[in-house]
Simulated scan of single mutants.
Amino acid sequence: MKISELVKMALVNILGNKVRAFLTALGVIVGAATIILVVAVGKGGQASVAQQFAKLNAGTIFVMSSQSGTYKKPLTTKDVAAIREKAPAVGQVTVLINGKAESSFNNRDYRGDVVGVFPEAQPLNNLKVQAGRFISQDDNKQRNKVVVLGSEVAKELFGDDTVTALSSTVKVHQRNLKVVGVLERLGDATGGVNFDESAIVPYEVAEKYILGTTVYPRMVAQARDLASVPAAMSQIAGVLRETHRLRGDDDFFLRDAGSKLAAAQDSARTMSLMLVIVATIVLVVGGIGIMNVMLVSVKERTREIGILKAIGARKKDILLQFLLEAVIISLAGGIVGVSLGLLMLPLMKYAGLKAIPSTLGVVLGMVFSVATGTFFGYYPAKKAADLSPLEALSYD
């Protein structure tokens, strides 16, 4: 028999049992839609990780004081000076201090962070000034009562009026500080500090007048290049052990941005893999449904199979007819499932998930759907093809 005739016969049988065909395809529909969502969410997760670390150099190293029971000595400006002198693999290094504080102007308040910095914090954290200037070395030497506002703080206190902001005095932790700059939006926190939600002040001002000694300073360093990161970390650790006169455990710990990026990427990949496994399980369940329905269909159409064989249909023709039915059902289910998945993508933002549609998701959805129908439809089709004509005709 010609393929066109077999396809026509398969379509007639499917259309003759529309409800059954829909229920058979339901598992494939859900599976294909799941694959579309899984791939989109996976790509969204990878994009979010890339965006989060895009403004952070992979050669950046964070140094934090240990807050365990073995804590002995905080990080200081003397440690920074020693690292600059004795750690040749380190290109830049600075110390900063941060803690919670309320910023206010007139009747507007913003509860965020206050961060004490030196000028080196700007290039190390990729901070860009939208208006005005950043904290200078003179501000620290003279302990000037000035502040640079993060984008969120400035927006909450002044809206989009940066002109008014630069001519105003705000209260930070009940201290009057003159606004000298407003930062551009940075995005996600870097090294545990969200500069968008912070009031940035001179380090000496934060330490003496606002935060005192109740918080732990931290350092941000940058290796001369990516290949120098291990050497830079080793040299920083050696210098700190020397300046802190340690004989036992370290009273600090180091973390490089590259390892954080790798860990975040691994987490995103693991989550994507888990979601793919879930989608595969859904498709397998859908495939089992196809096989069960096709087995029932073979039993119901036993006499029809006998008649076809009696008039000259070959085993190959019977096999192809039933296999085509399974493939057509799964193909239709794949098309509906992919379309449904694409329509559901905009809803992902309401679940707090970033989803990016891709050609890969569509291709995988269709390939897995057809493969499911072919794999699970083969056994019923073969069983139909192997029926004896005499047994089939005599079946009641």
Score class of each variant (00 low, 15 high):
55 K>N: 12
48 S>H: 02
273 L>Y: 05
29 I>D: 10
83 I>T: 09
236 I>F: 01
5 E>K: 13
260 K>S: 09
185 R>Y: 11
275 L>A: 02
164 T>K: 13
65 S>T: 12
14 I>W: 02
196 D>Y: 13
21 A>G: 05
11 L>N: 01
352 G>P: 02
152 E>F: 08
228 S>F: 02
20 R>W: 08
269 R>E: 11
366 M>Y: 02
263 A>I: 06
10 A>W: 04
196 D>S: 06
353 L>K: 01
83 I>H: 08
203 Y>Q: 04
376 F>M: 09
165 A>D: 08
3 I>K: 06
374 T>D: 06
371 A>Q: 02
183 L>N: 11
368 F>W: 06
304 E>W: 12
206 A>R: 04
271 M>H: 00
162 T>L: 07
4 S>E: 13
268 A>D: 02
165 A>C: 12
176 N>Y: 06
186 L>G: 05
146 V>F: 11
109 D>S: 12
267 S>K: 09
280 T>D: 03
157 L>K: 07
371 A>D: 02
114 V>N: 05
109 D>P: 00
121 A>V: 10
55 K>V: 12
323 L>C: 10
90 V>Q: 07
93 V>M: 07
259 S>W: 10
121 A>Y: 15
81 A>K: 13
48 S>P: 01
124 L>K: 07
375 F>R: 11
19 V>Q: 05
274 M>D: 00
49 V>N: 07
384 A>M: 14
328 I>P: 04
3 I>M: 14
21 A>K: 02
43 K>I: 03
120 E>Y: 14
249 D>P: 11
253 F>L: 02
104 S>K: 13
260 K>G: 07
89 A>Q: 01
354 K>Q: 02
320 L>V: 11
237 A>S: 08
353 L>R: 01
156 E>K: 15
7 V>S: 04
131 A>D: 11
224 R>V: 14
309 K>C: 14
123 P>F: 10
170 V>C: 11
193 V>P: 03
122 Q>Y: 15
326 A>V: 07
65 S>L: 03
357 P>T: 02
304 E>V: 09
63 V>A: 05
237 A>M: 00
267 S>P: 01
209 Y>H: 09
13 N>C: 10
243 T>G: 02
43 K>M: 11
78 K>L: 12
79 D>N: 14
229 V>F: 00
333 G>S: 04
40 A>M: 00
117 V>N: 06
305 I>K: 08
196 D>W: 13
337 G>E: 08
35 I>H: 02
351 A>H: 00
157 L>S: 08
383 K>F: 15
298 V>G: 02
71 Y>V: 13
